[in-house]
Amino acid sequence: MTLDGTKFVNWIRRANRRIQENKDYLSELDRAIGDGDHGINMARGFAEAAQRLTGSADQDLGALCQQVAMALLSKVGGASGPLFGTAFLKMAGVWKGKDHASVHELSLALREAVNGIKMRGKAELGDKTMVDVWEPVSRFVAEKAEHLSWRELCVFAEEQMDKTKPLQAKKGRAAYLGPRSSGHLDPGAVSSFFLFEALCETMEESGGDR
């Protein structure tokens, strides 16, 4: 049930694979209501993050998280770079010096990540951004605590992603479209879902459900 360095690295590598596979899909989503680069940005950033971790012998979750944060901050660019970067930076702060994280410690890290994303981007729940996945996911993990099922979390995260579809964007590039932004998934919500899906799969694979 606990996250350790090896699982963390597996998580990020799995997330990277998922994002590379869906690079065009994410850009396609961004083309509809943004500028069409979200897949390109995320693929560039996660490729770098996965590569940096591959060589790393570190088992400190804080240090690993920090490496991911720096890779994303220096490679993604755009809006998603500072946001995903800040999220991992905040998680690194919570996990500093730890080589294991329980579900409780995961929920603390996610809470800080959500706060960081909201502080940086000033978006609220319902603004049709990645916050619409991160915030409910963070709450879900906190509420379920030791009863958390990774499979349920994955389904839940996907539901949150889907809920961004009808919304009208209030933050980010899609906001410029006004009502025309409704009817499309938010690209950052989808890439965030991929990130959590990869986490759930990694944890499930290694530890079984629960």
């Binding site: 560039r44 220096s74 490679k75 660019g77 755009g78 809006a79 770079g81």
Partner: peptide, 12 residues
């Protein structure tokens, strides 16, 4: 200079 249509990163 960022990538095409993408803001440059803080380190740059």
């Amino acid at each position: 200079l960022g990538e095409v249509f993408t803001s440059p990163t803080p380190d740059q």
